[in-house]
Design a protein around this nucleic acid. Sequence first.
DNA 1: CTACTTTGCTTACGGTGTAAGCTTACGGCG
DNA 2: CGCCGTAAGCTTACACCGTAAGCAAAGTAG
Lengths: 204, 204
Amino acid sequence: MATTPERRRAGRGGRPPQLTREDIVATALRVIDTDGLDALTMRRLGAELGVAAMSLYRHLANRDAVLAAVVDHLAAEAFTELDPGDSWSEALTRFGAAYRRTLLAHPRAVPLLATHPMDIDVGLRLMGGVLDRFAAAGLSRTDALTAVQSVAVFVLGHALAQVGAPPGSPAARPETAEAADYYQSWFVAGLTAMVAGFAARFGR
Amino acid sequence: MATTPERRRAGRGGRPPQLTREDIVATALRVIDTDGLDALTMRRLGAELGVAAMSLYRHLANRDAVLAAVVDHLAAEAFTELDPGDSWSEALTRFGAAYRRTLLAHPRAVPLLATHPMDIDVGLRLMGGVLDRFAAAGLSRTDALTAVQSVAVFVLGHALAQVGAPPGSPAARPETAEAADYYQSWFVAGLTAMVAGFAARFGR
DNA sequence: CTACTTTGCTTACGGTGTAAGCTTACGGCG
DNA sequence: CGCCGTAAGCTTACACCGTAAGCAAAGTAG
């Protein structure tokens, strides 16, 4: 977790910061990935950063703020550029797959998305490219939002089902290849059905 | 929480129980409904039942077991008899709506379903009637499970989006009628699209 | 140097889940 | 009746949590 070479703050005086908000968030996500959500205590997070727990409060209001920041971080990670040639239905499918990829890359963090809803602006930025494809096809913003958000909640719900475990399961719980295949084809079937359904309603 | 008139246990001797597992679960759900998930502490739950916190451990292994039991309780509540004349697509739509109704009846409990996945047998019992409609139409069990579970995760994901709030919101957060309408029509659109998509794939 | 500002640290408190062992209330049996 | 086994509930205690309050340190500006 090396600090950036030039860490002089913008503001005038004061002790130079040894901690960045981004450092904290990235470390928090790493802890969640390796040891799970419950392992992310303020003391643990501080220890990982070589700092006392209370020092974190200079940068984030409380533990919930840390978790919310992790959610935003994940949203940024899920952002994908879209091929400009895609139709809205292709873009929608791609969006769902990309969002899913990000969630599965951080299985222990997925329940966070359920508990700490994504900031609305962050969410819109994440879906922005797809929404544009709908607009380009002459569809209303309402229809676009309905379709994209429907896919988004499906992806999240599906990921929850995939990574979920009666909490108390032995730590990391590596997924078998068969299980992964099962969930993947279920996912594709559901996503395809939903996109096809919207296509039938909106017309291509 | 009056005890049932005849509360003699089945087993031989011993002090007669003053607490039932069902009492505990029902009270837990009531606390969650009124004061939220965080308010459900073992001490609080004991106090509501007129009992010391540690007494609960005679009936449920730990707090997570209480939460899991609440989830099962909700699943039982979501169970709906289906009209035998329904096609699989009608039954599927009805199932989604009924599941959604139950979730919205307990908004503060919805995140539980994300965190504590439903027991597999409980889930199958919940979906059993719908699965039968698929079988009656000659569809494979795999296809049936894919469709029903897809709807289920969509319903849960959607409910999470509806009831979710940056945790720290002022307690109960009553929903405006406009918001409820918005989510309802979004829900109908998404569910309809998904069911239509599966219908197109499976054939009616 | 002194004054100021910002960061990080120390200490402390109330609340949590729950492990260990004790007490209480019953039904059965001598 | 007295005693005993047994199951339910209670008391106490502990480690750990988030975080409020105030202090120490490390820079810049004058």
